[in-house]
Simulated scan of single mutants.
Amino acid sequence: MTKRQIALLACTVALTASGLGAAAPSAVSRTVHLVKPGESIQKAVDAAKPGDTIVLTPGTYRESVRITTSDLTLLGSGSASTVLVPGDATAADACAKGGHGICVTGTDSAPVEGVTVRSLALRGFTANGLWASRTDRLTVRKVLAEKNGKWGIAQERSTRGVFSHNTARNNADAGLFLANTTDTEAGATDTKGTRVTHNSLSGNRIGLTVRRLRNVTVAHNEATGNCAAVFVVGDESKPRAGAMTLRRNDIHANNKYCPKTPRLPFLQGSGIVLTGAEETVVEKNRVVGNVGASPLSGGIVLFKSFVGAPNEQNAIRDNVVMRNSPADLADRDTGRGNTFTHNTCTLSEPAGMC
């Protein structure tokens, strides 16, 4: 954010406080809270009302922030100049104690609605850069999440989220992680149209994980240098995971090596992997140069989930899938109704799909 923009926002606050802005009804109910390095972001968030904006001026902020009020905007001055890093390790706040940078949390009966987090960086938190639970219409835009101990940007139990133009890099697990729940077993959640678009994902264990969800669009993202680029994960629970669209993503050279975990084998060279998913369309993606020897390696891979649930009724079409190894297209599953059509590729498992 430029000095001129900050000054304009400050002027708006002054006009509202003086009553001179009364000619604009929307300004009366919306306040801008300006925070400078050394001041408490949390204090401003706690004082804010629905519709307010908290503006962070350039600098480094050593704290975690918890948002529980709907229709708030937390606005930095750009991911290169407004940075949140871990603060007091003994803080009593649940967000800080959990090792997160920003937490947006509601309840089952009252989700937090319409929150926006924009134009800042979240770096070096022991758990997640941004953690959201029980939200509706959360927007995360132009956020840099890097070198966090688990996920860069993560959300569960939520609907209609928008994640766009973010950069998630060098996080210990997924750069972006979207799930139904993280602490219980349950069927897939209908997200009512969550969108993941124009993000850059690099150097993570997995670029993007979408776990046990339905009705998600993943489009125009770039993933490179991860151990695996995109995982769509389901299981035998009902409703099944799926009914998604993965379109026009650029997936290339995800050849970092990551050792096995109790849940997954070692990862290297995985482009787009579907496990236990149904009715998902994978189309018009560029998937190039993903090379490895893991059971999950290859360009676009269908693999039975690790609890035995097959992929079914998925459409893999019109993709450019080249120079991946051991195969460009790999159907390593026994599920029915999966189709591979009009893809540009050289080698498939089984043969004949290119």
Rank of each mutant, 00 (worst) to 15 (best):
A186Q: 13
T191N: 04
A10K: 07
R205E: 10
A132R: 08
T261N: 13
Y61H: 13
P86R: 12
L72M: 07
V282L: 10
P262M: 04
S26N: 07
A174G: 15
T73M: 06
V291H: 06
A96T: 15
S164H: 08
V104G: 02
H342L: 03
P310L: 04
L122K: 06
I67D: 01
R134C: 09
N343K: 07
N166M: 08
F266C: 04
K3S: 10
A80C: 01
H165D: 14
V104I: 13
L347E: 05
G292E: 09
T105C: 10
L9G: 12
V112M: 03
L15E: 11
F266Y: 09
K147P: 00
E113R: 15
N324F: 09
V232R: 00
V216N: 01
W151F: 11
N148G: 06
G203H: 03
V320W: 06
G234D: 02
V218W: 00
V281K: 03
L144R: 11
T209F: 02
T2P: 06
E113A: 09
T126A: 10
T197M: 03
G337M: 09
H220Q: 10
T57S: 08
I67N: 03
V140Q: 01
A27R: 02
N204G: 15
V35R: 03
L274H: 02
Q268N: 10
G289K: 10
D183R: 12
A327F: 15
S79R: 12
I272L: 11
L56N: 04
F231P: 05
V232N: 00
V307C: 07
F303Y: 12
R134Q: 15
G161C: 08
A241M: 10
A89S: 09
P262E: 13
R30F: 14
A121W: 05
R323P: 01
R118P: 04
A219I: 14
A309Y: 00
E63V: 14
C345G: 00
L84P: 02
A351R: 12
I6S: 14
N311Y: 06
L56Y: 03
L267V: 03
A110P: 07
P58T: 12
E63K: 12
V233D: 09
V273K: 02
S26H: 09
C345P: 03
V83Y: 02
G225M: 01
S81K: 08
G76M: 07
A91V: 08
N128Y: 01
R248C: 02
A96N: 03
V233L: 11
R214Y: 01
G106Q: 03
T181I: 06
N148P: 10
T107D: 09
F125W: 08
A219D: 05
